[in-house]
Design a protein around this nucleic acid. Sequence first.
DNA 1: CCGTTTATATTATGACCGTACGACCATAAG
DNA 2: CTTATGGTCGTACGGTCATAATATAAACGG
Lengths: 198, 198
Amino acid sequence: MARYGKEHKLATRQRIIETAGRRFKRSGIDGSGVATLMADAGLTNGAFYAHFESKEDLVATAVSDQLRYQREQLAAVAPGRAGVEQIVRAYLSPEHRDNPEEGCPSAALLDEIGRCGDPTRQAYTDSMLAIVDDFAARLAPHDPQSARTTVLGVYALMAGTLQLSRALTDRRLADDLLEQGIRNALAVLDGESATSGA
Amino acid sequence: MARYGKEHKLATRQRIIETAGRRFKRSGIDGSGVATLMADAGLTNGAFYAHFESKEDLVATAVSDQLRYQREQLAAVAPGRAGVEQIVRAYLSPEHRDNPEEGCPSAALLDEIGRCGDPTRQAYTDSMLAIVDDFAARLAPHDPQSARTTVLGVYALMAGTLQLSRALTDRRLADDLLEQGIRNALAVLDGESATSGA
DNA sequence: CCGTTTATATTATGACCGTACGACCATAAG
DNA sequence: CTTATGGTCGTACGGTCATAATATAAACGG
């Protein structure tokens, strides 16, 4: 009875989710209307509600998807301290700052997510925990439970630093802040591993 | 010829700015309409444009005002390391997290500000620098220039941590993150002062 | 003490965009 | 050729920013 190959709708849905993720990061959640989101995916607004119950439904889904993608990217980096430093430097780079739509969803949307309803915040929390646990296991295989909070703290540090760097009009200052953020992130990570390692 | 006491309009303007600041922090910038903002101040939408050129004009003004207020609050705290620790603990407290409309404008709005136009970001930058220079002078009277970036980094760390704590639905985890943020902020501050002091 | 003057605020209006839904259509699978 | 699926288009209703016309109220002169 399947009139369309069953991938069709799923592929469309996925396309909407991905383009929406990018649009949200560029224009904000409240700043992105359904019509615009659908146009980004090459569709018109009416088709939206065949794929999602509501805008909030899409928001939660897109946030999850964005964090899932971020998790994959992080997992692809070489293990060990060298990998960690590479991640930190890439995250707190001028390139990342200047291309929010291709970057971290938390840096682009965190305060807006904080104002979202429970379903969206729950989706964010779940996906966030997957990232953090992934990373904690790599960072401290002997005690991933305690490393969880450390990783969360560093993540917050990096997201906040990138946001502030984006908000400043003084380029020089914004660049200096990124450098400072790298030092801070590494100091926290090294300091913590020394503490828990000793 | 002034038929109204000249304070009247200024007082009204200030009332709009202050109530708008609170509303922005609660509902976001894009999430707050002009009519709502005016109703908060006990007025109707039409009167808005007698006080401000546009919504963006108000946003820039309100952001400045919020940061000016934050600067005053910070200046009122006792100097020395004890004062610094007090500030960090108050900032990264569950009370602050759970009352965004009375709290830090950066924690509530930073990513949205990053997407604002130049005038707003410029206003943010100027007010931010006033806070940071204030604080840097208190923290390292001998070398406030270098302390500037340190303070900016800690500010970003704290804002990001508070945002993330607000986004998480797991209360326990959110609380743990705040504690971790306090440790991180103090570690950065103590580490930096040791470096520049030695 | 009262009316005039004028600043301030209200209400009405404009054109546009927001979410959400329903009717209709084209197409591709069987 | 039938059928249901995924899509477009049109629509409802409210909210958005902004402006203009109108009403109100405060301070002054007489």
